[in-house]
């Protein structure tokens, strides 16, 4: 099958990332280092594009994941919800090298959900009466105040799935799902990195978490680091 939804499986990360250009807005799934498209993230640095706007909840942590984009100096702007212990972002924000737009996490995910669903903007109660309200339309509906937040589109989304079929139907594992499905829906070109690739029919249609209509390229990467951020355990009884 040819066409946009024909052959989606590409043999290499570099081939998958060939359409990237300087200045693009890239949505990258993951909550911290969990659910990161590790090979695609590495591949973007090797690809040699720059001046990127990165949309991600955290922009890496502990020097890993998207922190490597910060170290490579390929990011102009970050739209995220949380910086926390990400020193690579703190230093570049302080020096002015990278512009940072901090958005409440639920607003960040809903802005991309709206983008993927064809909704240009929406009213939300989150952020009313705070700095997030600055420069935004405020509307009272049924006695409560809401902010108008705009949809957030990406040129490219890089997502990570546990399983993909050849059409790009995706299944995720545990909390690695996080932003991946909404980001997949909000970009013109979505590239999925999967741990396991199966033939069409290998995922039951009722078990698909993200329908392949939102995915344009699939790259099979069997090995992942899956780094821990904070390994917390209890003693066995």
């Amino acid at each position: 099958m040819t066409g946009k939804h024909g052959n989606k499986v590409v043999p290499s990360v570099q081939e998958a990332l060939a359409p990237l250009r300087d200045g693009m807005t890239i949505l990258v799934g993951g909550f911290g280092l969990s659910g990161n498209a590790e090979a695609l993230i590495r591949g973007v640095v090797e690809r040699g594009v720059g001046d990127l706007t990165l949309v991600s909840n955290n922009a890496g942590n502990l020097g890993k994941g998207l922190a490597t984009w910060l170290k490579a100096g390929i990011i102009r702007k970050v739209i995220c919800s949380y910086i926390g212990a990400n020193e690579d972002l703190h230093t570049r924000m302080a020096s002015g090298e990278v512009e940072v737009e901090i958005t409440p996490q639920g607003t960040l995910s809903e802005r991309m959900r709206a983008a993927g669903a064809g909704i240009p903007a929406f009213y939300t109660p989150t952020g009313v009466g705070t700095v997030v309200e600055q420069g935004k339309e405020v509307k009272e509906i049924d006695g409560r105040r809401y902010l108008l937040e705009r949809a957030l589109h990406g040129d490219v989304a890089l997502v990570r799935a546990a399983v993909s079929d050849r059409f790009g139907n995706l299944r995720f594992w545990r909390t690695a799902r996080n932003f991946n499905p909404v980001m997949a829906s909000a970009a013109k070109l979505t590239i999925a990195e999967c741990d396991k690739l199966v033939d069409n029919g290998g995922i039951d249609p009722d078990d698909v978490h993200c329908a392949g209509i939102f995915v344009h390229r699939v790259v099979h990467v069997p090995e992942h680091e899956n780094a821990f951020e904070y390994k917390t355990t209890r003693k066995r009884p």
Binding site: Y82, I83, I102, Q105, V132
Partner: peptide, 9 residues
């Protein structure tokens, strides 16, 4: 600035 995360929501 540590960020907002899910606090406001």
């Amino acid at each position: 600035v540590m960020g907002i995360g899910g606090a406001m929501d």
